[in-house]
Design a binder for these strands. Structure first.
Lengths: 241, 241
DNA sequence: CGACGCGTTGATGAGATTCAACATGTGTGG
DNA sequence: CCACACATGTTGAATCTCATCAACGCGTCG
């Protein structure tokens, strides 16, 4: 089960967290960012495969990822699923439910992970006193819209090879922004999950990886990826990257 | 060119507008909704084909549609476009730019249309004093996220026939909610635009319309659509509708 | 060890795109 | 108000991309 971890006085807080530059306090003055500390009173530890929240659960909190990787997805009545995002440390998940008072998606940990609990009650009331927080929330949501629309563009207009290339470039950039290597990383998600996210089958994804490897763009060993020729990968990705 | 129309004291205002139930004031107490009236000081008239804003334009305002239909789309460096939404009266367009201070998409009128100008400066400052407006903005943005994610699901998992059926059912429902007929309406967008939105070619859309007509689900005369057998259409749409 | 999850690879086929020709509608200028 | 041009829509045939079905390899875990 999920473990709830209460924070003590000497725990790392938002104001001292290295992820601040990606997370909720982005772009807030130090003084305002300090107020975030009141907000986060506990964390949740998730084992791989555990869910953080499920579609239509009550929306008690949104969550900032401290470490680990999550996926969020929608589900159809007939069981078909669509993954709507893979989420890295510093990202906030659950925002898509803010307007309806219940979660609009399901979130699952792809590896052992830890998230900061941000209770929506406290978040809204603090936001009412803190315009900079308000703006930041807006910014996060509108960025999520942009991001989803970029995916629409990808699913709507791009072919398989292009989609996978864009996926890899963008993952690489997000990891690099967080201080990880941009050229060598571990895919926390399965071929099937990548395929689902990109609107492809797992076989197609596997074949494309093989093809990229054969042409010398990537080196692949199971989930371990190394981008050998970033320029070529960007070329495959088309005019996005 | 776009015509700017200043509002006079006796113009219809938010508090007296019939679209209130879809637009910005949704779910706000009458007293708070009254404050909206200060916000909208002018409207803009658009001829068919005119743009309301373009990608990366400065974000001076967001817009509530008073009458007409707009499309919003993204554009790639190589000219490929992806339509991200068709917008009906009562909907707010431009919210996707709120986080970046510039527009994240381009908006074009599909027919002669009129929109209410909502200056973002005034909107933010009013929102800071009016928690109910703040919440409404959140709600609108998170609904847009949900909507885009629904489209991701559609593009990622559904086949052509299903997508078009879902499109028609959802358009029908949105029109019905606005007091129009749910079974007979005019498509303001071309086959090409529908195809682009759904990730299909215009030929495929045309063929599907013909097939739906032949099987007795629809009657089609150019842009005039009549849904003859809604139950069958919902069946084609799969487990969404 | 055997079972199971995950990934790879090949053969085949379906669904959608592309190319092309034609039909119909719409708008403009004479 | 008609004629012509151009945009939009329809339909057919060939083609291609990707999905499906299937077999098999590898690694992990009870």
């Amino acid at each position: 089960m999920t473990k709830r971890i209460p924070l003590t006085l000497d725990s790392v807080r938002c104001s001292t967290c290295g992820l601040g530059q990606f997370c909720l306090p982005v772009g807030m003055a130090a003084e305002d960012a300090g107020r975030m500390d009141e907000l986060v009173q506990q964390r949740v530890r998730l084992a791989r495969g555990e869910s953080l929240f499920r579609f239509e659960d009550g929306l008690d909190a949104v969550y900032g990822i401290r470490f680990g990787t999550l996926k969020t997805y929608l589900e159809l009545a007939d069981g078909r699923q669509q993954i709507t995002g893979f989420h890295l440390p510093g990202e906030i998940v659950g925002l898509d439910g803010l307007g309806r008072n219940s979660h609009a998606s399901t979130a699952i940990a792809l590896e052992d992970s830890e998230v900061c609990v941000i209770p929506v009650r406290d978040l809204s009331s603090l936001a009412n006193h803190l315009p900079s927080l308000q703006r930041q929330l807006m910014r996060l949501m509108s960025r999520k819209i942009e991001q989803d629309q970029q995916m629409l563009l990808s699913l709507g207009t791009m072919r398989a090879e292009e989609r996978l290339a864009v996926f890899l470039v963008s993952l690489s950039e997000r990891l690099a922004a967080r201080g990880y290597s941009s050229s060598a990383f571990v895919l926390r998600m399965s071929r099937e999950e990548i395929g689902n996210f990109l609107g492809l089958t797992l076989e197609t994804v596997s074949r494309l990886f093989s093809r990229f490897a054969k042409s010398g763009v990537l080196r692949i060993q199971q989930k371990q990826v190394e981008i050998v020729d970033m320029a070529a990968l960007r070329r495959l990705a088309g005019p996005h990257c």
